[in-house]
Write a protein that binds this DNA or RNA. Structure first.
Lengths: 316, 316
DNA sequence: CTGAAAGCGCTTACAG
DNA sequence: CTGAAAGCGCTTACAG
């Protein structure tokens, strides 16, 4: 009888009904992922890491895009939980995020990736934004730049907040008083970087270097600089963040901070899997290293700009 | 009693168990999507269209990456069907695809997007590769080019096959005998375009223009051309396909064929939804228009190249 | 119109 | 060790 059944199973391509199994075992082997926008290569690469790690353990992943809209985030997640996903991976955290606080209160398994709530929770897998930003600005300082602008991310998102803090502290370590006019919140997109850079270039005492919160903003800055008839790095040095060089081929090639995007996604998935399998919670957050990639958008400060007759000097 | 229950429901944030509902109703409201690689901006944009259209109708989407490996395609799809997805959207079709033939035989609801099996089935949503390729090559012909190479896609995938056919037929319409040495299969990635372009440049009688199967291959070609110390479009004109200009910022900006990627994904999802809701099958395939975007990588054939002393002439 | 019961297809604890 | 039964949380057809 057994053999006959097994043969029949093969013949009819029998597949166990996963829905029935889920109902009985209370495990769906599906994880939900909430992401601002999968069409953004940054998140696409993180997501690829998530999917790869999950697929290794026979988990599937449902993806929801939110376009950074908190309402869509809430709606997606409610739907996902209704579908009985075993856990959630969120790339949408705000520093103060009532919605994620709700997940914590409910004890629902989840991991934060890239962005984290404040203070950083043990279930977060994020880049070392603070030290990365410091490294970027130290690089500019080492090239002789003293007047350095920052095209900043959003203050209510951990990446924007930490990168700005790293920028300010790097300046402080070199006894440079930050100029508020040189910090412009520009968001994370090309258009924001473009608009902010135009403002920077309109300053009477323009900076010799710019640290952008990410490569997309840097791309916008590059466009504004080119439009103004200036050259990178001759007239302005520019550092980005994220190293989207594989998808974003700019001229000149961008000096930027490299993040292990795929590994970050995979680590987030592994953390969730661990929670689901052992019902343990991670002890402490995972902060991934960020490394400087020197390419062609940064150079030594031009000597004629070092001491302009009427220019204020900010270095000691 | 009712009101008390409704109040309790709200208090405890009650969500109906979707798994139990699925088991009873035989509908999961989940669709599976099988894609070569979500980290590729082309597929990421198509996928975004799919997710947007599906979310409008309260469907969720599970994504599986295959890296174009037929074995992973089979494994993912088996898993997806085990999870009782209501239908499948596949961006992985080969022209002869036993696996998809199996779905057809089983009558399992599915839609093909971007790539199709041969002959093109009614459930396909694809770009007009053939006419797009013709337009691209006609553009080069109008600029005076007669010796035009093609960095071709894979012959067993509809996009590669149709774009090659469009290339050949455009030449034929101008009474140009195609030179087999000028058609090089290079796949769909940067590295393939680079290697193929090096071969092209090594030819004794190099072409004055190149039509690449996609922008990624064109990016590789651009790199090979720059390495050879030649300039685009002065020495070689180059046309791509897909218009990934938002994510791929090349210098010079690429003349290419624009595809409505997001709309293609959304249309594929809508077609599947229609099948699921009305149990009807589409009458005929949806072939999306492809339009020429003229940018900076194509120009008139250089006059000194028109009649080189010892060069063979291919134009009539 | 209301409410109890059957059943979706599994898994697992339990009786034989 | 084997096999019948209960039950996961819904929906829906049906009895009252």
């Amino acid at each position: 009888v057994r053999e006959r059944i097994l043969t029949l199973a093969r013949e009819h391509a029998y597949r166990a009904n996963g829905v029935a199994r889920s109902l009985r075992t209370k495990r769906s082997y599906v994880v939900g992922t909430v992401i601002p926008d999968i069409a953004n290569p940054f998140f696409a690469t993180v997501f690829r890491g998530i999917e790869d790690a999950l697929a290794c353990h026979d988990y599937s992943v449902i993806l929801a895009n939110t376009d950074d809209d908190p309402e869509r985030e809430a709606r997606s997640t409610t739907m996902l939980r209704g579908r009985q996903v075993d856990g959630l991976i969120l790339a949408t955290a705000r520093r103060i995020d009532p919605f994620i606080a709700g997940l914590v209160d409910a004890g629902f398994p989840h991991v934060l990736v890239n962005r984290h709530t404040d203070p950083i929770p043990a279930n977060a897998v994020v880049p070392d934004d603070y030290h990365g930003a410091m490294t970027a600005v130290e690089h500019l300082l080492a090239l002789g730049h003293r007047r350095i602008a920052h095209l900043a991310g959003l203050a209510d998102i951990s990446t924007g907040h930490a990168r700005r803090a790293g920028y300010l502290d790097a300046l402080a370590r070199h006894n440079i008083t930050p100029d508020p006019a040189l910090v412009l919140e520009c968001g994370y997109r090309e258009s924001g970087g473009y608009a902010a850079m135009r403002q920077v270039l309109a300053l009477e005492d323009a900076p010799t270097a710019v640290f952008a919160v990410n490569d997309l903003a840097a791309a916008g800055a590059l466009r504004a600089i080119a439009e103004a008839g200036m050259r990178v790095p001759h007239d302005v040095s520019l550092v980005g963040f994220n190293d989207l060089s594989t998808s974003l081929q700019l001229t000149p090639q961008l000096t930027t901070m490299h993040l292990p995007l795929h590994a970050m996604g995979a680590a987030a998935a592994d953390r969730l899997l661990e929670q689901l399998q052992w019902r343990t919670s991670p002890r402490e957050p995972l902060v991934m290293p960020v490394t400087l990639v020197e390419r062609d958008s940064t150079g030594p400060v031009a000597t004629e700009l070092l001491g302009p007759p009427g220019g204020r000097r900010h270095a000691v």
